[in-house]
């Protein structure tokens, strides 16, 4: 299934919430650096869903997929 958006849209969404930051490295841990907290995480999942057009089972999320922009891209943006 073709994915509609790109990981850059997720990066931009996070940067809009953190005006103190200009960039986010693809391997930067979003949770440990507090770019994403537990409440933002709910919204982040929502952004990934609307960007990719893929519905995510919110109750069975593998948090490892959301550690970095690279893991998000690999899990949701790169189709086999």
């Amino acid at each position: 299934m073709a994915v509609t958006g790109s990981i850059d849209e997720v990066r931009d969404w996070i940067l809009r919430r953190h005006p103190e930051r200009q960039t986010i490295d693809a391997e930067e841990n979003l949770i440990q650096t507090r770019l994403v907290d537990s409440l933002t995480f709910v919204e982040l999942v929502y952004v990934v869903e609307s960007t990719t057009g893929v519905e995510i089972d919110f109750d069975n999320i593998d948090i490892q997929n959301f550690q970095t922009l690279a893991t998000i891209e690999k899990a949701f943006f790169i189709t086999a």
């Binding site: 409440l39 709910v42 919204e43 929502y46 919110f58």
Partner: peptide
């Protein structure tokens, strides 16, 4: 601690609110 501003963002979208309540 939760700032009220964060909640304003959430309540504007029923689907989002249904994920936390």
């Amino acid at each position: 601690m939760v700032p009220f501003g964060r909640v304003h963002d959430l309540v504007s979208d029923k689907a989002m609110l249904a994920r936390v309540l």
